[in-house]
Structures are given as structure tokens and as C-alpha cells.
Write a protein that binds this DNA or RNA. Structure first.
Lengths: 215, 215
DNA sequence: CGGCATCTCATGGAAATCCATGATAGGCAA
DNA sequence: TTGCCTATCATGGATTTCCATGAGATGCCG
């Protein structure tokens, strides 16, 4: 569980810390890759495997919390903050933005390892989910423009004839598009296609639900 | 936005704090209800309206953080912690468990008000979602046992005849159950029913997906 | 220009769904 | 006992879906 294909990135300007952390993690059989600044970390090309980021709050170039915000949109690994002078507002901000933990020196090896294990497990899960979603997204991109128009109509629950009327084409043509969509999206049933559309966050159109609505 | 039907619960053993907070919030047009201990708060019957909980960490009976855990399962309002002696591990724990903010005395009125506004907005949203889900759950409870068996089979994408075979009944009977389910769940289409089942977290059964799977 | 992808439509038959009407039977409560 | 809910099944017809085969029109790329 600890020493699989995962890696821990370390960003700290103090070389002694980097070395100490590297050695500690090595003793647990965990690979590491250290950087002396946020810039170096951002520039480096990270291997695509389960990872986490041990991040010092006080860095020479930019603040660790700002780095967290900066990479917040992309697929960044879970962050475990480390700091010598932590304060509560920073902690709140870090955790609210998804950090796994916020450790203040001195901290125990056990606390660090626990945080790292949690972070790696979290990343593994997130990666698996992203991979699944990536497959679906790719399939969606393989659809033709027309097919992308047909999909939401079908998953909204419209009858073929209704969807056809919506697009101003014959029912036969719509059926062909519909079948192509099912095949390309690898859906084995309409129910399946609906769930796929949900995951892709394809909005429900043209459905006169009387009661409640979608999330 | 501030003074609608919302209410702020205050739990603090210091009467001066309770009064000060009550007056401050009153000046913003926000109703409050104060308690001197966690026990009093838990026992009290809370009005069903958008709320948030201003919670002191140090309480006479139990720790504020423990109270947070204790009420974590139910529909409790978002928590804003207040403390005189905050530490970082407590902050991490509080925020990770969903607290909106963790304020250390002395804090500004602006910071407090911002946290309260966020918490109230969050509770309004959560309440709306719970209400929607509650309607669906109630409808689900109105189903007969047999109908509850039929639902997952249908939303799994099985054909009527397949689902009927699964239950060892005739296709006709299954169609009747199916129609009853659609009506009782107020679903206007199969696609609709699938989405409702997703919200109710009804698992997909008996579907031989070849590719990927559900979450 | 010759493919290739896309979008379009028709016909026709097999399969499945939708719907209504009618009926039997067990369990449970007024 | 009577009435209601639940579960079961049948028949039959209208509607819809599913699928295959064939084919015409456009537009783009090499």
C-alpha cells in the first residue's frame, strides 16, 4: 500500500528539510522528487502516477497557499502543507481549498506519514475517476455535431418523433443518429446513456418536468 | 439577503459573549437563539428554517469539536467556530469536518458576518436539496415491495421481458408494476426515472456493461 | 477528381412498449 | 363479511422502437 508506483513531491527552500524528508520517505519505500521553489515545481514535468505534494508555506518565489490556488483548476495532486510558522487563517484557507493536512514544525513522522498515505489514496481515487471520465469525454468528442445535438434530446426522455421534430428532420434520420450515439458512447441501453450523460453533465433539455429539477 | 427567515444559534458558556453576539447580529437584522452549553443546544427543538451555528470550542460540558462530530450525521446547520485559544490541529479537524470558518478572538465584525452569510447561504442550499430529495424519498416509500424490486431492474436498462424473467413473473405483470412505479415516482419518462434513481442512489443491478462501471 | 465523412430519407418487418379492459386471489382492516 | 390494497395474468390494438438495406446530397481533403 505504501510503496507502489506512487511518488511524493517535496517543495521546500531549505535543502536540509528536503533531504530529511527524502530520506524519511525513502525509509518507508516511497519515491520522492524535491524542488527548491514553486517555480521549479510548476515547470517540471510530473510523471503520471499517484502522487502528493508536500508543500512548504514559506517559499522564496510565491506563497505556498497562492501556489495552491494557482494549480487549483488543473489535475494537481493532493497537498500536505508544512510550515514553521502556521496561523489559523492560513490553515482554514488551505483546508477549505482541499489540502489534506496542515502540519506545523515540529511534527511527528507518524503524523506526516498518515497525511501522506491519505493524500496518496485520495489521488489514486481521483485519478481513477478522472480516467473514467476521460474515456467518456473522448467518446463524446468522437460524436459528430449532429449527434451531439441528438444526445441531450434523447437523454431528456423525448420520443424519437419529438426529438426529430425538434431538429426539423425525419424520425428515421434521428433514429440513425440515435443509434450512432449509443454505439459511439458504448451505451448498452437508454438508461445507460442517461447515466453517461449525467456524468458528462449534459443538461436536460426540452423536458417538461412538473416537479423538482436537476442538481 | 441577510434578514430573511434565517436564525443564528449561538453556543457559548460566557454570557457576555452571547449577549454581545446577539446584539451585533440584531443590529444586522438577524435573529439569534443562544445556549450556554452543548447539551442545551442539542436538547432544544430548532425551528426548521435556514440557520447556522456559532459554536465556541471550549464548552462546559463537551468540546465543540466533539459536538460537531456528534451531530455530523443529521441535518445540522453549518458551523462557524469561535475560540479564544485556537490551535492548528483543531482548525484542520473542524474545517475538514465541514465547518465554514474557524475564528479566533479577537475577530472583526466583518469576518464574523462574512462567515455567517456564507454559512446561511450554504444552509439554504442544503435545505433546498434535502427538501427535493425528501420528496423523492417519500415517493419511494409509497412504492409497494414489489415495485421497489422492479425499479432497479428497469433503471438498469433491462427490457421488460428480461426484468420479468428476473422476478419470475409474466411480462404483463411487470409492465403494470413498471407503470405504477413511473406514476408514483412522478417520472415523465424512463430517462427521468433513471435520474431519479440516481439521486436516490439506487444501485444498478443486472446490467452487463462491458466497459466501465458506476461510481 | 475520387474518396470519405456527414446528414439526409424511404421501405418494411421484427420486436418491444404503452394502454385499457377484465379477471383471479391473498391479506388485512373496518 | 365487505372493501381495499397488492400481486398476478390474459387479450388485443395502437404506438414506438430496433434494425437492415438502399440511396441521394453536401462538403472537405489529398
Amino acid at each position: 500500500m505504501t510503496n507502489d508506483d506512487s511518488i511524493v513531491f517535496i517543495v521546500d527552500d531549505d535543502i536540509r528539510i528536503r533531504e530529511a524528508l527524502g530520506e524519511l520517505l525513502a525509509s518507508y519505500g516511497i519515491a520522492t522528487h524535491a524542488f527548491a521553489s514553486a517555480g521549479e515545481y510548476v515547470e517540471a514535468d510530473k510523471p503520471k502516477r499517484p502522487a502528493c505534494l508536500l508543500l512548504d508555506v514559506e517559499l522564496p518565489d510565491i506563497n505556498g497557499l497562492d501556489l495552491q490556488n494557482q494549480i487549483a483548476d488543473g489535475d494537481h495532486p493532493p497537498i500536505v502543507f508544512i510550515t514553521g510558522h502556521g496561523d489559523i487563517p492560513s490553515t482554514v484557507r488551505a483546508i477549505k481549498h482541499g489540502a489534506v493536512d496542515f502540519l506545523t514544525k515540529p511534527f511527528s513522522d507518524a503524523a506526516l506519514m498518515q497525511a501522506i498515505r491519505t493524500a496518496l489514496a485520495q489521488d489514486r481515487k481521483a485519478r481513477a475517476e478522472r480516467a473514467d471520465l476521460g474515456v467518456l469525454r473522448q467518446r463524446y468528442l468522437d460524436l459528430t455535431p449532429r449527434e451531439r445535438e441528438v444526445l441531450p434530446l434523447v437523454t431528456s426522455g423525448l420520443l424519437n418523433k419529438q426529438a426529430a421534430a425538434e431538429l426539423g428532420i425525419s424520425e428515421v434520420t434521428l433514429q440513425i443518429h440515435r443509434r450512432n450515439v449509443m454505439q459511439k458512447m458504448a451505451a448498452v441501453s437508454l438508461a445507460d446513456l442517461v447515466r453517461i450523460a449525467e456524468k458528462l453533465e449534459i443538461p436536460v433539455t426540452h423536458s417538461r418536468r412538473t416537479g423538482e429539477d436537476e442538481k
